[in-house]
Each structure stands twice: as C-alpha cells, then as structure tokens.
C-alpha cells in the first residue's frame, strides 16, 4: 500500500497545483458571496438561502472537480506518456489505479472540509449561534456522492483516451443517476416489454445519485433525515465505488501502451 499512498500523494499535490482547482475554488467563493447578497434582499429568508446555495455550491464544485480532474486521472498520464516511466517501476497496476482514486478523493475531501468550515463560520456569524449540526448529514452524503462520481470518472478514464468522451460519459451517468427513480417508474408506463426491461435495467445498474440529495430536507429540518439513512446510503456508495474501482483495475491491468 506504500506505493498506492505515494501515487495518491502525487495526485493530491498535482491537483492542488492545478489551475482547474483554483478556478473551481474561485467559482465556489463567488457563489457563496452571491448567496450573502441574495440573502440580504430576501426578507427573513437569508439564512435559509445561504444554507441552500452553500450546500449546492459544495456539491457543484465537487462535481466539477470529480468530473474534470477525474477523467484525466489515468488518460492524461497515457496522453503525455509519463505512464511509460511509472509502470516500468516496480508498481502493481492496481496500486496505481487505487492511488489515483484515493488522491483525488483526498483533494475533494480537503476542498469539502474547507468549504464546510467557511459555510459554518458564515452561518454562525449571521445567526449568532452554532449552526444546526444536521447540515453535516447533507455534507456527508455530498462527499459520498462525489466519491462515487470520482469512481465513475476513473473507470471511464482507464479505457477511453479522449478526455471529452470520458467527461461526457461521466456526466451522462450522473444525470441518468439523478433520474434513476423516474426511470424505474417509466418502465411501468411503456407498452413495449423490451423497452421497459431496458429502461428498468438502466435504472438499476446506474447508481442512484438522487438518493444522495437530501439538501432540501436538512436545510428545512423536515422531514428529519435519520443517521441510519445516511449510513445506508454511504454503504450503497461504498458498494458501487468498490465495483467501479475494481472494474477500473481490471481494465487497466489488461491495457497495453503502444
């Protein structure tokens, strides 16, 4: 695992020095600042709006990082041919893939922690008291969602040599996953059994990203979101992450480098 840790640290360092990250962080700051302004012109709703926009910004900046840095995790190494030197070293391919994944998730965690701290400080200043810790349930599920989305991006990154195609596929899976419940329901109203089965299969195979979206519930405080739901959803993410990273390892282990 030492080598996987080194690869992870390398990805973390590269991501932190990447201009894309600064752009995303800048964008997030602008959104948070905008939420304060919007809150001031909305009578009595300022704290709620800041919570809404704050959580949405956490999620959106994480999605941008997971997709646009994630799709390049492996394919960029292949494109710039640095992969030749790395894989000629005594490194197992699974160590490389797992390290790449862990490094980007680490970067996303850091980003999420810093932005959550900033959001809580802002809320504490506006409310004059500690913000509702229930918001953290939303943050935990955003993190689980981003870890899952990073695994999707990594999976596509291992066999597609085009960053644009990988990003398109990853975003496609994300969007379909946001509507997975609708897809399952849609299968009940189509007349063709083949189409119904196909739609149901997509709804089952594609991870249900909609399950992670509890932002409105934690902002309003009702209906209350039990910690058991959070834990089960995190477990659900872990299952998909294991399958996707395992798939990425399997694909990458068979890959040749011309």
């Amino acid at each position: 695992m030492t080598r996987a840790r080194l690869v992870a640290w390398h990805v973390f360092k590269e991501s932190v020095r990447d201009r894309v990250l600064f752009a995303i962080a800048g964008f997030a700051l602008v959104l948070v600042a905008a939420s304060v302004l919007i809150g001031q012109i909305t009578a009595g709703q300022d704290v709620k709006i800041i919570k809404d926009i704050g959580l949405a910004t956490l999620e959106l900046s994480g999605v941008l990082m997971a997709v646009f840095i994630g799709v390049g995790l492996v394919s960029r190494e292949i494109e710039r041919r640095s992969i030749y030197s790395v894989l000629a070293k005594p490194v197992h391919r699974w160590e490389f893939v797992v390290g790449k994944y862990a490094g980007l998730v680490g970067t996303i965690v850091l980003n999420l922690v810093l932005m959550t701290v900033a959001l809580f400080l802002l809320l504490a200043w506006l409310e004059g008291k500690m913000p509702d810790p229930g918001l953290l349930k939303g943050v935990v599920l955003i993190l689980a969602e981003l870890a899952l989305l990073t695994a999707v991006a990594l999976f596509f990154s291992t066999f597609s040599s085009s960053g644009i195609l990988s990003a398109g596929l990853t975003l496609g899976v994300f969007v379909v996953g946001l509507f997975s419940e609708d897809l399952r329901g849609f299968s009940g109203i189509v007349s063709s059994p083949v189409l119904a089965s196909a739609v149901r299969a997509i709804g089952v195979v594609v991870p249900a990203f909609s399950a992670f979206d509890i932002k409105a519930d934690v902002v309003n405080g009702r209906p209350p979101v039990p910690w058991a739901y959070v834990a089960m959803t995190v477990l659900y993410a872990c299952f998909y992450v294991s399958a996707l990273v395992g798939g990425a390892v399997a694909v990458f282990s068979r890959r040749e480098f011309k």
Binding site: L6, R80, R81
Partner: peptide, 28 residues
Amino acid sequence: LGFLPEQPVFYDHLTAEELLVYFAGLCG
C-alpha cells in the same frame, strides 16, 4: 530494470528533484 522511454515527458508541476523523490518511493 531501469527504463528510459523515447522522448520522455513528465509532470510540468514538479521539479526534477520532486519527480525523482516520487519515483524513488515507487521503487521502494
């Protein structure tokens, strides 16, 4: 085995020292 690929390319954001420390770690 040590391998020099043809026209090698590395990571722009690293210095040569950082790259070699990283690779030394990968070599155990």
